[in-house]
């Protein structure tokens, strides 16, 4: 039975696409056949982060409208045998996503895949609502910052009232917190909300903490999901996140300040 996972947040720019790319790649590397779908119609970007932008021929909306079949639109990842990308349309508007159309495509994908990741657009309009509607699991991506936390709480409300599981009185969507762009140094100096603060306010289980890291920009520059970079703390933190998603119980890393050398302490970094 395929699991449908939505990566959502409400607020833009918190790391949904970065996280979708990394988690999808991580699941596939663990041997699970995975597809990641870009729901941001009109503003597609997942293809760039995954490094397959020049191989896009057909897209999600083409499949919904019957202008192409799934096998024509799915892009097979270069690095990972079990990973596929379904890109968003760049031209049409968000209303191209209908509940019937999206449901039909997800049903077809569920026959072939173990995991279906839905990379939600920002906001609470059609695209975002369609990305979360069919979900079994929600990864609520949040930055330790007031507007992001508030918007995440709004999205939790949507998951609990506007999803298929809510409408049909099924078991609720499993909601998890993914805290991104975390800076232990700033938390220590009292300038940033801590993991405990955000967990307490949103009151959902923690799936992972991704430290603010230069490797994320480097990864997107080169079109390689950051989880591939196993020398970086962000890459390792995403690997831990995927392991937890698969049921492992791992301690959270990279949430305390790194020790600095004596000279660094005096002269700053």
């Amino acid at each position: 039975m395929a699991q449908i996972i939505v990566v959502t947040s409400g607020k833009g720019g918190v790391g949904k696409t970065t996280s979708s790319a990394a988690i999808a790649t991580g699941l596939a590397l663990q041997g699970h056949k995975t597809v990641v779908i870009d729901f941001d119609i009109g503003l597609r970007n997942l293809d760039l982060i995954m490094g397959c932008e020049r191989r896009v021929v057909y897209d999600f909306v083409n499949v919904i409208n019957g202008e192409a079949n799934l096998n024509q639109a799915l892009i097979k990842d270069k690095r990972c045998e079990k990973l596929f990308v379904l890109p968003a349309s760049q031209t049409r508007d968000k209303d191209a996503l209908t509940k019937e159309g999206v449901g039909r495509v997800l049903d077809d994908l569920a026959k072939e895949f173990d995991y279906i990741l839905c990379d939600s657009p920002a906001g609470i309009e059609q695209g975002a609502m369609m990305a979360l509607y069919f979900a079994d699991i929600a990864i609520v991506t949040t930055n330790p910052e007031v507007s992001s936390v508030r918007d995440s709480d709004r999205i939790l409300g949507m998951l609990q009232s506007k999803s298929r599981r809510a409408e049909q009185n099924l078991e609720p969507i499993k909601e998890y917190l993914l805290l991104t762009r975390y800076s232990p140094t700033r938390v220590k100096s009292g300038e940033m909300l801590s993991v405990e603060d955000v967990s307490e306010i949103l009151a959902i289980p923690l799936l992972g903490v991704i430290p603010e890291s230069q490797s994320v920009l480097k990864a997107s520059n080169s079109g390689v999901p950051v989880i591939i970079d196993q020398e970086s703390d962000a890459g390792l933190a995403y690997s831990d996140t995927v392991a937890r998603l698969l049921g492992e119980d791992l301690p959270v890393r990279f949430i305390t300040e790194e020790k600095k050398g004596f000279l660094q302490r005096i002269f700053g970094s």
């Binding site: 910052e145 508030r150 709480d153 300038e191």
Partner: peptide, 18 residues
């Protein structure tokens, strides 16, 4: 610390939202 202020403000607004 500003983080403490952020937490207090969020707790109020989130309770209201809920």
């Amino acid at each position: 610390s500003t983080a403490v202020m952020a937490k207090e403000r969020l707790q109020i607004i989130v309770a209201h939202q809920r």
